[in-house]
Design a protein around this nucleic acid. Structure first.
Length: 885
RNA sequence: GGGCGGUUAGCUCAGCGGUAGAGCGCUUCGUUUACACCGAAGAUGUCGGGGGUUCGAUCCCCUCACCGCCCACCA
């Protein structure tokens, strides 16, 4: 016998172990392929609520399709997360009092990172198991493992040889703390309060000055010009004149360029090509060589006055401003708010545009087929509007800087000869051979120190995890994958780049569908953050309420395009649903509704059983349809309602008399039907709540014949045609309405609990009489109606409640607040009057009658007739009420 | 500056051409053997403002206001 509560803690781990060891997570040999590659979590990561959402949705799809008979590959793995991991290990070294990585040396440092990875990395894979994620762990991959690294090398070399990867010296976003370049996407512009200083640049000849405005005075040492707009009348006379750059001996020209905006600042802008992206372009246009004055640690450097050299950029700013002030060259300053580029990880370091040589991928070229594939619908976004986001970015894509000055990552396969010539090959031998061929002799080579952007290897994930570049059965069978489930924040970082790489190397899209889900935020809708202290830890929730409760909560709230609000209160609510289900099963078990042998859902004769089969059939169809459309909330919602509000609230109540009755045939049929419906419920719920359903599957199996298989590999309910029984549905819904109605009447009129309510049927109620007779015992039990007063007219002093054919009449003596009741009735009459007037206006509108569809018009007529009839009855009741009063 | 989304019950949100809905919360009542992690009933809405299309608009179009988010710029 089941206990009254499900205890997730006692079964989750062993159920998971049983699934995994049974091989259920592996793709089966036959069946249509269905593949999902997991968005690889960082090896440093631990499961946060966003992962929980992301992987719950993937798992629902994986389990759903598995049950539908497909051969499901859910490919798991982890990302080496270059920057994040390097930071973690460096911090750990520091904490342990070790020397820094530079002192340690590259080789030794990398050894430490691998050790760290083996010992502490990948906690998240254990946590994903706790969530119930049915990934094929036997195929787990890591972006730095041997196979994936081989894929990376091959891709890099091929792109290089195709001219799609090249080295270039240009401005990049530089992180002075980490000492590496980062891509545009990794920059976070944060609005800060700053000052806009106005600085006088004296003309070289003839006195006078030009005022430039800047937020970054320290870069003035690298100025190569002052630009004004060609049409700016204020400065026409000054174009081509020279100014003396303050604090230096340099003379720089005043140039004319449309970049200068007369509206901004003074209309004259200083041009510092080495330290500003726009200025770099202006400098190029005017063939002005950049002057570098800030070094890679963000200190002042280069051909500048000795006193500034080596100063930190912000100290230099203060010093420069002080001197300008002293020299009378500062023309005031105003406070402004402006966006300053920060590193996206810590948001503490201000990035510096830095002139460096880096490796770039020609993204523009690769983007073309990637754009076309979404345009043609080969890859579809859900929700669709994210395709716009994708298009916008792809059509304006910039060269992708893929080199990073880090150690942890895929080292770039480029070797340099002493003369600087580069040889890009998959390994050192090949590079040496290439060099030998070029120089006609052995030449010493040194390898590029840099590593690749982490997203470079992630971009290959959809095929590298399947064994590419080898020609594996998995690649043949599972590429392209079916659906990629991810959040919108990595559309650019990952989705777009997977599209580019997939199309280039596999000649096909990496996935047919991209399901973009929303963020998880706190109950108030605020972003979760450690500093705010509003972070909800999924592992704590699993401990407290079980993985199923968390999963159902996430699924119920995963409406397309909507943030998922999470608090523990909601999870508690869905945990209650598990208890409800558990107790429904318990009830079934107590009543021996556990024999599921060869039940034909078409066989039941009893209305109630036919009705529940019908309802179940509709629910199963809805759940299937909604899951196919990735509307998890709709699918889960339909099940929730069916289980709680139909199966538990009504069906179980309605069959109690049958289960306790003396009709053996009805008893047997009801037991079988209840058992069958419960079993379908358990199957349908399994993708959402795998643990409780699997547990119920086996526990309920203790009573019947042996279960052959675990629920995880059982079939999804596909119900035959003809199970929808409209007649039964109508009759049972009538019954339910009648019971609700009398309950409502009882409450409203304060009828004492023990007292019966006389039932009165007025006019044309033959069918109702029959129904009443058929369900007399039930109605008596649930509504406590007294049939002795069945009559065809209402006695004076009764209030009638009209519902379809049945009218419930209640004696008023002693139980009714007449005035309140009269006012209620009057109000209702008024409402009906309004409705009738509205319909009359409609029906009186010639155009409506002419143009509206017949069905709509007929509906309006019917509604009018109903309203009129209802009104008449209410008025009569009101009359009697007044008389009685 | 460009783009996307939102504005519906006290709260959180569905609905997206033809009777305004759910969950939670609230009020009242109940609890005879699945479940108090329970059951029943009830109350609450100028569907953000203004215009338009339509026989008919919460729904489609335009516009305004406010709130999110993304991209770009920021002298």
């Amino acid at each position: 016998m089941l206990d009254t509560n499900f205890d997730p803690k006692s079964v989750e781990a062993s159920l998971y172990e049983a699934w995994e060891s049974s091989g259920a997570f592996k793709p089966k040999a036959d069946g249509a392929p269905f593949a999902i590659v997991i968005p690889p979590p960082n090896v440093t990561g631990s499961l946060h609520i966003g992962h929980a959402l992301n992987n719950t949705l993937q798992d629902i799809l994986a389990r759903f399709e598995r049950m539908r008979g497909k051969s499901v590959l859910w490919q798991p793995g982890m990302d080496h997360a270059g920057i994040a991991t390097q930071i973690v290990v460096e911090r750990q070294l520091a904490e342990q009092g070790n020397i820094g990585r530079r002192e340690l040396g590259r080789e030794e440092f990398l050894k430490r990172v691998w050790t760290w990875k083996e010992e502490s990395g990948g906690a998240i894979t254990r946590q994903l198991r706790r969530l119930g994620a049915s990934c094929d762990w036997s195929r787990e991959r890591f972006t730095m493992d041997e196979g994936l690294s081989r894929a990376v090398l091959k891709v890099f070399v091929q792109l290089y040889k195709e001219g799609l990867i090249y080295k270039d010296k240009r401005l990049v976003n530089w992180d002075p703390k980490l000492q590496t370049a980062v891509s545009d996407l990794e920059v976070e512009n944060i609005e800060v309060k700053g000052k806009l200083w106005r600085i006088k640049y004296p003309l070289a000849e003839g006195g006078g000055e030009i005022i430039v405005a800047t937020t970054r005075p320290e870069t003035m040492l690298g100025d190569v010009a002052v630009a004004v707009h060609p049409n700016d009348e204020r400065y026409q006379a000054l174009i081509a004149k020279m100014v003396k750059l303050p604090l230096t001996d340099r003379l720089i020209p005043i140039i004319s360029d449309e970049y200068a905006d007369p509206e901004k600042g003074s209309g004259a802008v200083k041009i510092t090509p080495a330290h500003d992206f726009n200025d770099f372009e202006v400098g190029k246009r005017h063939k002005l060589a950049p002057v570098e004055v800030i070094d890679r640690e963000a200190r002042m450097t280069g051909d500048i006055p000795e006193r500034f050299r080596g100063l930190d950029r912000f100290k230099a700013r203060d010093a420069i401003l002080a001197e300008l002030e002293q020299d009378g060259l500062l023309d005031g300053a105003e406070d402004i708010a402006h966006a300053v580029p920060h590193d996206e990880k810590t948001k503490m370091v201000i990035l510096e545009p830095m002139l460096t040589e880096q490796w770039y991928v020609d993204a523009k070229k690769l983007a073309e087929p990637a754009i076309a594939a979404v345009e043609s619908g080969k890859t579809k976004f859900t929700p669709e509007n994210f395709a716009n986001t994708y298009f916008h970015w792809m059509r304006n894509i910039q060269p992708w800087c893929v080199s990073r000055q880090l150690w942890w990552g895929h080292q770039i396969p480029a070797w340099y000869a002493p003369d600087g010539k580069v040889f890009v090959e998959e390994n050192e031998q090949a590079a040496k051979a290439a060099a030998k061929a070029h120089y006609k002799k052995d030449t010493p080579l040194s390898r590029d120190e840099d590593v690749l952007d982490t997203w470079f290897s992630s971009a290959l994930w959809a095929f590298s995890t399947m064994g590419w570049p080898d020609d594996t059965p998995e690649v043949k069978r599972f590429y392209p994958t079916s659906v990629l489930v991810t959040m919108y924040d990595i559309i650019f970082f990952w989705v777009a780049r997977m599209m580019m790489m997939g199309l280039h190397f596999m000649k096909d899209v990496p996935f047919h569908n991209v399901l973009i889900h929303a963020r998880v935020v706190d109950e108030k809708g605020a972003k979760m953050s450690k500093t705010k202290g509003n972070v909800v830890d999924p592992l704590v929730l699993i401990d407290e309420y079980g993985a199923d409760a968390l999963r159902l909560t996430l699924a119920m709230k995963a409406a397309p395009g909507k943030d998922v609000r999470m608090g523990r209160g909601v999870v508690e609510g869905y945990r209650n649903f598990g208890t409800k289900l558990w107790n429904a099963a318990r009830f079934c078990q107590m009543n021996e509704c556990v024999n599921w042998t060869a039940f034909d859902p078409k066989s039941p004769k009893h209305m109630i059983n036919r009705w529940i089969v019908s309802e179940l059939t509709e629910t199963a169809a809805t759940v299937t349809k909604e899951l196919e459309a990735y509307r998890f909330n709709e699918a889960a919602g339909a099940l929730y309602k069916f289980v709680w509000n139909v199966f538990c609230d009504w069906y179980i109540e309605l069959i109690k008399p049958l289960l306790n009755g003396s009709d053996e045939a009805a008893l047997a049929e009801t037991r079988a039907t209840a058992a069958w419906v419960l079993e379908q419920i358990i199957r349908l719920l399994h993708p959402f709540m795998p643990f409780i359903t699997e547990e119920l599957w086996s526990r309920l199996g203790e009573f019947g014949p042996q279960r052959a298989r675990m629920l995880i590999v059982e079939a999804w309910p596909v119900l035959p045609e003809g199970l929808i029984d409209k007649k039964a549905a109508e009759e049972i819904n009538w019954l339910i309405d009648l019971v609700s109605l009398t309950r409502s009447a009882r409450a409203e009129l304060n009828v004492p609990a023990g007292a019966k309510i006389p039932l009165l049927l007025i006019g044309g109620a033959k069918e109702s009489c029959k129904r009443l007779e058929r369900h007399q015992e039930l109605i008596d039990r649930l509504a406590r109606l007294d049939y002795s007063t069945i009559a065809d007219t209402a006695p004076a002093g009764a209030v009638t409640f009209v519902h379809g054919e049945a009218t419930v009449a209640l004696p008023l003596e002693g139980v009714v607040d007449f005035r309140a009741e009269a006012s209620r009735l009057a109000k209702e009459v008024k409402r009906l009057d309004g409705e009738i007037a509205k319909i009359d206006a409609k029906l009186g509108n010639a155009e409506f009658v002419r143009k509206a569809p017949d069905a709509v018009i007929e509906e309006q007529r019917e509604r009018r007739a109903d309203a009129l009839a209802a009104k008449a009855k209410l008025e009569a009741a009101l009359e009697r009420l007044r008389a009685a009063a």
